[in-house]
Structures are given as structure tokens and as C-alpha cells.
Design a protein around this nucleic acid. Structure first.
Lengths: 194, 194, 194, 194
DNA sequence: AATGAATGAGCCTTCATTCAT
DNA sequence: GATGAATGAAGGCTCATTCAT
């Protein structure tokens, strides 16, 4: 239809379709046939772009975590003060969880995978944590946070609070995302670590 | 082994064995044969105690979440001040995650299951959150926490921080559990919500 | 309860119970557990009397066909004229099919069995046919039937008509057994072979 | 083999293969693997055409009974006199039983099946009986049969005699099918009902 | 390149049989 | 002798993967 999607574009299309299917059925419930149908192509075609179901899943994981990492990084970089930075993270996390509710489910099935990808996943998680740590350290040096603050602990407080809040809003007690009072969240966090 | 294991004892033995196997292989990787072998019994015997693989998994989920709920409740009840209560929760959560690292993995595969069990699981999660909320409310009334504190938010801060910390210590950067500085964690949380 | 049934009596009790279960569930649907329960005994006890499910089934087959053979023989022997003999057979066949509807179903699964029992079963069938042939031959000699009658053919006509009638009455269009007009049946048969 | 077998042709091929296997091993002895091998295809392929073993068996039953019904009907329609009609039925029944010895065995295992198919099977049986009844009624009206003849009884005599004869020739005392003296059979029957 | 019919390895589950009590 | 908990062989069915078109 469209001029013909480049190989890379098609690959991404399949990936997106697969995310939806994995999210809906879980890893083992997601038949390759469903994924093909969701992508509007034939079963065999999937194998032209991904060598196996496992590899496809791994690619999805990489892809999704990468999206998250990038978004978070951008949010941190855009803020001037630690308050703004955390606020940006809060907003992005909420938006991401809301849009990619599925991603969370997918990310949770990591252990089925090859050691390889498991390590990769851990690594990205670590990277994200590291971003936060750097942010905290920098803020400490700028005097925005108290000087005796344990960096790891502060990081846990920030990530934990943000994610727990999103989880509750998305999974336990779903409400419109724009009702979230980000300043209040950031306030609680900042009181703890300032 | 022991003289005679009552039906209930045997059922629990199988459950425990199954937890290990599910944790190690994931739901679909966990063959009933492995579970039987882990429990030191024949494949068919598992079916004398659990009608299907799905039901077995559901029982595990119920069992584990229940253990967690009970432990947390006990911790809250034993504390006098909000500080002691949170400290107890911190300690129990760390211990539980450390001992039942598997549980966390298992709990994450909820979506494969029947609507029934999914709802049950959500319900218990809600109950746990409710416990925390009650704790916060009571502390507010006793004047231990500031009067304009948003209860939901405070709850997210407590649960999120505790769990994130444990996750990092267990999954990302494993270190001996007794090195955890609980008072410091509680301090960060309390500053945020006091 | 009763003085204690002799081994043989108990064996027969199990046999009777097994007939009911096989008849209800078919060979492969009939679990040994059902049979034991129907006989009011434990699963293991069945094996004290019959070495295997196959053997039990074989015994049932023998038992039932034997009952049929004996009843038929008695009916033939009791009659004076060919008319009376066939009438007796008609009555007995109707009664037997009605009472042992199950038997018919069981007898139909013969081919699952060992060659041994299959041959035995064929043999009894042949014996029954032989009884009829003898009956026809004797009647021919007594001048009750025409002299140029083909004995095999006559036999088929008698057996076929009787059994087909019973089948229809029992399976296709069930009606009370005492509504059967045996003289009319015999009349049609006799006209054909007299 | 042949250039391209349409879906329907392939389905029929499998059906034919399955008839052979069911006939040889009985319902429960017939492994899907055997059926696949007999059809010269893979195990999974059978499931592309029949959703389960039970359904496959049901289709076979329908298929076979239908073949029988059609053949019989044709035989009746082709004859002018009742004598010719019965003769045609005699010939067709003998041929069918000889060629489809297996069918008879299969048709006998009806009780394992779903109520649905059982009723269908009964229905076709009834239809066949009805054909015979109509034939008899028509012959009565044309004065070919005596006017006080009981139609049901006559039907039993015809069907019973024909089938019993074939059974004996095929199962008990196998002899070449062309040795059958159909006129003699018809003669015995007609004497009984004329 | 795209397809989907065909494949068969693999696993859950059943149930006849055993044997310790 | 009677029992029924335990067993594991066996088979129906699924679905990731292949390959001829």
C-alpha cells in the first residue's frame, strides 16, 4: 500500500504487534500465529525478520526498556533543579506505564529467557538506577539535597515511590492519568531526601 | 521420611517443591515431572493433591501472597509508633524477598491465570495496600504524621521505597541481608511523610 | 454381613458389577475404580479376583454369551414342535436383550480383545448357530419344514428376524416387552421356511 | 501423489485411512499416530482437518452410514417388483459388508460418542428402516404382499435375514461373496411375507 | 519476499496396576 | 484378605518452525 515499508520499518511493525500479543496472552500463550495476524502478515513472514520466538521476545524487551531508558534520561536532562527533574520523571513514568501497561507485564517474565538477555535486562535496569544515582549525586553537590544522604537509599525512594504510585493507578485502582498530582508526589519524595 | 505425613502436610510439601520449580523454570518451563521429582514423588501423585498444573500454580500464588500478607500485618501490629511499624515492615519485606526471591518471580506471572485467581490476587494486593493506608491514617490521627498528608501518596512512598530497596538488594546488586540499614530507610520515608 | 460369601460368589458379584459399568461406559471408559465402587469394594480387591482389566472383560464376555447360549438351548429343548421351539427362542431373545441391553453393547466390542478370546467368542456364536441348524435339520426330517430348504438360509432367517425385531424394540423404538406379538413373528418366519 | 489434492479430497483420504485404523485397533487402540502414518502424513496434519479424535470418529460414522443408506436407497429405487428390490438390497448389503467389514465394527462402538452423534446415528438407522417400511407398504398396495401383513414385522424379517446372512458369511464362516445365492435368500423372505 | 500447510517434538494428564499397611 | 495411595507408561493435542510454492 504505502510505497513499501523498508525492511527496518516492517521489523518494527512486527515488534509493535508482538508487544500487544505478548502483553495480552503472556509469553507462552502468545502463539506466533496471533502475532502474525496482529501484524497483518503470514506466519512464515515473522521468521524472515526474527529467527525465533525467543529472539523476538528478547528484541521486544530490549526495545521497550530502551524506550523507557531514553525517555527517563530525556526527562532528567530537561530539568534544571532536582525538583523539575523528578517531576519530569514522574510524568514520564506515569505516561509510559499508562501507554505501555503491557510492557510492565512483559518485563516481568524475564527469567524465562536466556542468560544473555537476562543479563542485558539487568544491565539496563542498572543503567536506569545509575541515572538516578547520578542525578542524586549532582543534586547533593549542588546543595539541593542534604549532604549526609545515602545515595542508594534516595534512589530507591524516588524510583520506588514513582513506580508504586503508577502501578496502583494503572493496575489496582485505575483512574485517568491527568488526575495525578505530580507536585504532591515530588513533594513527599523531596521532603524525604532534601 | 518422617513417620507419616498427613494429607495436608504432603500437600504443602508438594507446594513448596513446586514453588522452587516454578521459580526456576517459569510457568511453562516447569514440567510437572520436575515438580514431582523435586517433591520426591511420582508424576501421578501430584495429581492426587492438585487437579491440574494451573490449579497448582494458583494455590502457590494464594499461599505465597497470604504468607506475605500475614507477616506484614504482624509487623504492623507489633509496633507501637509509626516508626517501629515501618521498621518492622522493612525488616519483614527484606527477609521475605530474600527467602522467597522465587515468590516475586512467580507473583509476576499472574496474567496467565484464570480471571478468578487474578481477581483474588488483586484483592490481596489491595488488602495489603489497605493495611498500609490504615496504618497511615491512624498515625495521622495520633499526630505522628502531618495532618495534610495524602494517605494514598504516603502509602506509595512507604511500599515503593521498601520494595524497591529490597529488589535492588536481591536482584540487581545482591548483598548480605544483614547489611541493610533499616533505620536509614525508615528515616528517609518518615522525613517525607512526617 | 452375610456369613461371608465364598470366593466364587464374590467373583460373580464383581462380574455383575463390572457388566453394569462396562455397559454404561464402554471398555475404555470403564475405570477399574468405577467397577470397584460399583461392587462396593476397594480398587485393589478386584485384582484379587481378576488378574487384569482385559481378563475381567473376557470373563464377562464368556459369562454373558454362555447365559445366552444356555437360555436359547433350554428354549429349544422345551418345545415340541418347531413352532414352539422358535416361539421359545423369540421369547427368550426378547427377554434377554431387554434385561441385558448392556450385553449387546459389550459383545460388540469383541475386536479389542486378544485373539484367544475373539476365537472363543466366535466359537460360541458358531455353537448357537449350530443349535439353530440342528433344530432346523431335525424339523426337516420330521417333515415340519420343506425338504428342499437350505438349512443355513433358514437359520439366518430365524436368527436374523428375531434379533432384528428385538434390536428395533430395544434400541430404535423402545416399547414394553410384553407388547411383542411372538406368534406373529413366528408366523412370518415359518411361512418362509415351511 | 496426484498433482494437487483439494482440501476436501485430503480430508476424505484421511477419513479412509482412519476407517482402516479404527477397524483394525478399535477406538481406543487407534492412536492418532497410526492414523497419520496410514494416511501418509504427520500427526499434526490430522488435526488440520479434524479437530479431535472424537470428531474424526464421528465423521467416519456419519460417512459410512451415509454410504450404506445411499446404496440401499438406490437398490430399492432401481427394482421394479418387490422381488427385484429385495434382491438389490441383498446384493448391496453383501457387497458393502464384504468391502466394509470394518464399518460394521466401527458402527458398533456408537455408545462412546456424544449424545449428538448417537442421536444422528439412530436417526439414520431409523431412516433406513423407514425406507424398508415404505417399500413394504407400497408392495402391499400393489398387491405384491398379503394385505394383513404387519409392516414392522416384515421389515424386521427382510433386514434381519439379509444382515444375519451377510454377517455369517463375512465373520463366522467366510466364503467368496459371489457364491451367495441371492434368489434363494429372497425366496425365503418372500415366502414369509407374500 | 511472502505464505501457510505440514510437521513432530514435547508435555499434561489419565488410569491400570502395584504394594505397604 | 482388603485397601487405596502411589506410580509411570502411554497418548491426545499444541504450536514453534520449516519449506515448497
Amino acid at each position: 500500500m504505502v510505497p513499501t515499508a523498508s525492511r527496518e520499518e516492517k521489523q518494527t511493525e512486527i515488534l509493535i504487534a508482538a508487544i500487544r500479543v505478548f502483553a495480552k496472552h503472556g509469553f507462552d500463550g502468545a502463539k506466533m500465529e496471533y502475532i502474525a495476524k496482529e501484524a497483518g502478515i503470514g506466519k512464515g513472514t515473522v521468521y524472515e525478520y526474527f529467527e525465533s520466538k525467543d529472539r523476538l521476545f528478547e528484541e521486544i524487551l530490549k526495545f521497550s526498556v530502551e524506550q523507557f531508558r531514553i525517555g527517563l534520561k530525556k526527562g532528567m536532562d530537561k530539568g534544571e533543579t532536582i525538583e523539575q527533574k523528578i517531576m519530569n520523571c514522574s510524568r514520564f513514568t506515569a505516561q509510559f506505564m499508562n501507554d505501555h501497561m503491557e510492557f510492565v507485564h512483559i518485563a516481568m517474565q524475564v527469567k524465562i529467557l536466556s542468560e544473555d538477555i537476562r543479563l542485558h535486562h539487568m544491565a539496563v535496569q542498572s543503567v536506569i538506577i545509575e541515572y538516578y544515582k547520578e542525578m542524586v549525586k549532582a543534586a547533593k553537590q549542588k546543595g539541593e539535597l542534604r549532604s549526609d544522604l545515602d545515595v542508594e537509599l534516595a534512589t530507591c525512594c524516588i524510583i520506588g515511590t514513582l513506580e508504586q504510585f503508577c502501578k496502583q493507578r494503572v493496575f489496582i485502582d485505575p483512574r485517568p492519568i491527568d488526575e495525578i498530582d505530580h507536585p504532591a508526589i515530588v513533594d513527599v519524595i523531596l521532603r524525604g531526601i532534601r
